[in-house]
Simulated scan of single mutants.
Amino acid sequence: MSNGLEVFNKILFLNLRPWMQGQVSEQKYLELLQEVQKEHYQFQPLFKVTFPKPVNNKRKYYAFLMENAAISYFNSIHSLISRANDNGKKYWVNDTINKKLKPKLKEAQQVIKENGYTREAINTTSNTTNYEDLRDNSYIIQLLKFHLIHIYLEFQNIYAHLLSEDQLTEEEIRQYYFSEAVIDKPVLTKADEVKLPATSVQIKVEPEEKSLPVYKLDFRPEEKGVLPFDVMIKNPDRFASFEEELYSHDLIDNNRNFKNIHGQLQELAAVYYVLIRKGYFNKMNLQKRKEITPLDVRKFLDHRYAASTIKQFNIWKNDPDGLAAFIEKYYWLAALPTC
Rank of each mutant, 00 (worst) to 15 (best):
P54L: 01
V55T: 09
N56G: 12
N57C: 08
R59K: 14
A63R: 01
L65W: 07
M66Y: 11
M66I: 03
A69M: 09
A69I: 03
A70D: 09
A70E: 12
A70N: 07
I71F: 13
I71M: 10
S72D: 15
Y73K: 03
H78I: 06
S79L: 10
I81K: 06
I81Y: 07
I81H: 09
N85Q: 12
D86A: 09
G88W: 13
G88H: 11
K90T: 07
W92Q: 05
W92M: 04
V93M: 11
N94M: 10
T96G: 09
L101V: 03
L101T: 01
P103I: 00
K106E: 13
K106P: 06
K106T: 06
E107S: 08
A108Y: 04
V111C: 08
K113G: 11
T118G: 10
R119C: 10
A121R: 03
N123Q: 10
N123S: 13
T125A: 14
T125C: 13
S126K: 05
S126F: 11
T129V: 07
N130Y: 11
D133K: 01
R135M: 04
N137R: 00
Y139W: 12
I140L: 11
Q142Y: 08
L143G: 03
L143R: 04
K145E: 15
F146R: 03
F146Y: 15
Y152K: 02
F155M: 05
F155D: 01
Y159V: 03
H161Q: 12
D166W: 13
D166P: 15
D166Y: 14
